[in-house]
Amino acid sequence: MNFEVKLFAGAREIVGKDLVIVSLEAGATVADLRIALGQSIPALRETIEHVKFAVNHDYADDDTCLSPDSEIACIPPVSGG
């Protein structure tokens, strides 16, 4: 099952794209997504340990289940202000 993940700021710059598609099993969680992203994009491996993920515009815990129609985003530590 394919999941689209939005990327921003440093994560987007490392990958060179603002969207990546990650293949995961049905019922996959945020924790599974974190592992899969680190494995499929080695350059992201260090950053991925520090990011949060948002599902449908809300921060999601590691055990949150993902659905392919959810809006999923990788949120590196924020620095607004």
Binding site: F8, A9, Y59, I75, V78, S79, G80, G81
Partner: peptide
């Protein structure tokens, strides 16, 4: 709280 949780980044 804005600086802690709002998804905005500076370069």
């Amino acid at each position: 709280t804005i600086k802690e949780v709002v998804p905005i980044w500076k370069k």
